[in-house]
C-alpha cells in the first residue's frame, strides 16, 4: 500500500465559458494499517495538481478511530482548496451524520446538504432531489459527486453533465481491458471502467485511493483530476 498514488488526468468539454479542475478521491478506507499513507498521498496530489476543489467521493472511513484521521486530512486540504464530500456505503454503516460532522467541523462542505458553485459549474451530491423524475438541461454545467457508479441512471434522468464515482476499486484485479471496461469485474458490474461517455453525460469512475482488502493486480490506486474545459479553454 506504500506504493505511489496515481493521478489520472481526464478532460471533459463543458458548455460553460470558464472551466475548472476537480480532484476526485474516493474509497480512502482510512482506519486500516495499509491506508495510513493515503491522506498524505492525497494531500501531495492536491499540492501537485492545484485543483479548484477536492472531492471526497465516499468510503472515507472504516471504523470510529479513523474519523480523526479524516478530520486531519480535510483540515490540511482546506488550506489548499475547497473540500467537498459525500458518504459511501462504508460511511453510512459507520453513521453518515458522524462522517458529515467530521467533514464540516474541519471546514469541508457536505454536498448532501449544500451545493458548491464555481462560476457556472455547480457541484452537487445528490442525483435525485425532490421533484419530477426528469428535469430539463439547465444553462449551468452540473457535476455530480457520487459514490456508486450505478447512480448514473438517475443522474442522466436528472440531466447531469458529469458524474464522478468510485466504489468498485476497478475490481482490484484486472486481467484485461476491452471496450473501455476492466475485466473480469466488468462481467459483474458494467460500470467497471475508467470513463463512460453517455449521450450528454460523462462519467469518470475512480479505481479508489485505498482498499479495505489490500490486494491489487494491474489496478493502481488513483485519484482522478477532472479538467472541465470551458469554451474559453478550447
Amino acid at each position: 500500500m506504500n506504493r505511489e498514488l496515481h493521478v489520472r488526468h481526464e478532460r471533459v468539454a463543458i458548455r460553460a465559458r470558464q472551466g475548472a479542475r476537480l480532484l476526485y478521491a474516493s474509497d480512502l478506507h482510512l482506519g486500516w494499517p495499509w491506508t495510513r499513507c493515503v491522506p498524505n498521498q492525497v494531500l501531495d496530489a492536491v499540492r501537485a495538481t492545484r485543483p479548484d476543489a477536492l472531492l471526497l467521493g465516499g468510503d472515507l472511513c472504516d471504523g470510529v478511530r479513523s474519523l480523526a484521521r479524516l478530520a486531519e486530512l480535510v483540515r490540511a486540504a482546506r488550506e489548499l482548496t475547497h473540500v467537498l464530500a459525500v458518504p459511501g456505503n462504508h460511511d453510512l454503516r459507520l453513521g453518515g451524520e458522524r462522517v458529515r460532522d467530521v467533514v464540516t467541523s474541519a471546514g469541508g462542505t457536505w454536498l448532501v446538504e449544500d451545493d458548491h458553485r464555481i462560476g457556472a459549474i455547480v457541484i452537487e451530491g445528490r442525483a435525485r432531489k425532490l421533484g419530477p423524475l426528469a428535469v430539463p438541461r439547465s444553462e449551468t454545467t452540473r457535476v455530480l459527486c457520487a459514490h456508486r457508479p450505478a447512480i448514473v441512471a438517475a443522474a442522466r434522468r436528472a440531466r447531469f453533465d458529469v458524474v464522478l464515482a468510485g466504489h468498485l476499486h476497478g475490481g482490484q484485479l484486472v486481467l484485461f481491458e476491452r471496450g473501455g471496461r476492466l475485466y473480469p469485474y466488468a462481467w459483474l458490474d458494467r460500470w467497471n471502467g475508467p470513463r463512460f461517455d453517455l449521450d450528454g453525460t460523462t462519467m469518470l469512475v475512480s479505481r479508489g485511493a485505498g482498499d479495505a482488502l489490500p490486494l491489487r493486480f494491474r489496478c493502481p490506486r488513483e485519484v482522478v483530476l477532472c479538467e472541465l474545459a470551458g469554451t474559453s479553454d478550447a
Binding site: 458518504p87 456505503n89 453510512l92 453518515g96 448532501v112 445528490r126 442525483a127 435525485r128 457520487a146 456508486r148 457508479p149 450505478a150 447512480i151 448514473v152 441512471a153 438517475a154 458490474d189
Partner: peptide, 14 residues
C-alpha cells in the same frame, strides 16, 4: 436492480 439500489441508498442517506 443495481441502479435502483444505488438510488435508494442515496435517498436513505439523505
Amino acid at each position: 436492480a443495481r441502479a435502483l439500489f444505488a438510488e435508494a441508498e442515496e435517498l436513505l442517506a439523505h
